[in-house]
Amino acid sequence: MKCLLYLLLTSSVLPLLAADLSPTLGQKSDLLLDESFSGEAVPKGWNANTGTLRVEDGQLLAGEKSSDQHIGAFRYRLPVQDCAVQMDFQLGSMRIINLGYDPAPSELKKKGHLFSVVVTPKSWSLIEHNDKANPESKTKVHATAKTDFDPDTTYTLLLECKGDEVVAQINGKEPLKAKAPDFHVKKPGLVFRMGGKDGDEVKLDNIKVWALE
């Protein structure tokens, strides 16, 4: 009885535990990626475009470098279309992290990113990125919510896309939803971006991708 009471009293101050989330736009089909970063080095295929990328204690740590004069960014090449990607993250002292996609070459007459889920310490959003080839194009915020993300808590994010629809879930938060005619296109892989000061790092783990049917 004392042990049970102790657990009940202490559970309210423990960080949220990461957990699998269920998609709402379809059913999980083939498992296309399952990466837990259990080795000592960054696994093959995880390529930093800017910023820093390293593995420590079974997690992928990613950050921005001011000398790059660009937000930290890395990709994992994995051709997908209708899919769900799940990852655990711990924000730490980062000011912003993004998970999203580019359109595959020749899919759209557009330059730049397609859409992303964006997480900051005080909010999160689903955004459709502007066309960098069109000066009049603007980034569109489809859904956003003010909510606090504890820097030391591990959250689970599930980003699913099927047809024109996108849904983002984070354990303990109300889902965000978006819809746009460009979202259905083929995508060449996952795009991760993160912003912060030198030395700031986001912790990522248990990244999984399923086809969605």
Rank of each mutant, 00 (worst) to 15 (best):
M1N: 13
M1D: 14
C3L: 12
L8H: 00
V13A: 10
V13Q: 13
L16V: 11
A19I: 11
D20H: 00
P23T: 01
G26Q: 01
D30R: 14
D30L: 11
D30T: 13
D30K: 12
L31F: 05
L32Q: 14
E35V: 03
S36K: 14
S36H: 14
S36E: 15
S38K: 09
E40Y: 06
E40C: 03
P43G: 05
P43R: 01
K44F: 04
W46G: 02
N47H: 04
A48W: 05
N49E: 13
N49I: 12
V55Q: 05
E56C: 01
E56T: 02
G58H: 11
L61S: 07
G63M: 08
E64F: 02
A73C: 09
Y76S: 09
Y76W: 03
L78G: 07
L78R: 11
Q81D: 06
Q81T: 10
C83W: 07
A84S: 15
Q90P: 00
L91Y: 06
R95N: 14
I97V: 14
I97Q: 12
Y101T: 09
P103G: 03
L108R: 07
K110C: 00
K111H: 04
G112E: 06
G112N: 04
F115K: 02
F115M: 12
T120I: 00
T120A: 12
S123G: 10
E128H: 07
D131N: 15
K132N: 15
A133I: 03
S137T: 10
K138E: 14
K140H: 10
A143H: 04
A145G: 02
D148L: 11
D148P: 05
D152P: 04
D152N: 12
T153G: 04
Y155G: 01
L159E: 10
C161W: 01
C161E: 05
G163Y: 00
E165D: 13
V167E: 09
K173M: 14
K177F: 02
A180L: 05
A180C: 06
H184D: 09
H184Y: 06
V185A: 07
K186R: 15
K187Q: 04
L190T: 03
V191N: 13
F192N: 07
R193V: 03
M194F: 04
G196A: 05
K197I: 01
E201D: 08
K203C: 12
K203T: 09
L204A: 10
N206D: 15
I207A: 07
I207V: 15
V209I: 11
V209D: 04
W210I: 02
L212V: 11
E213Y: 10
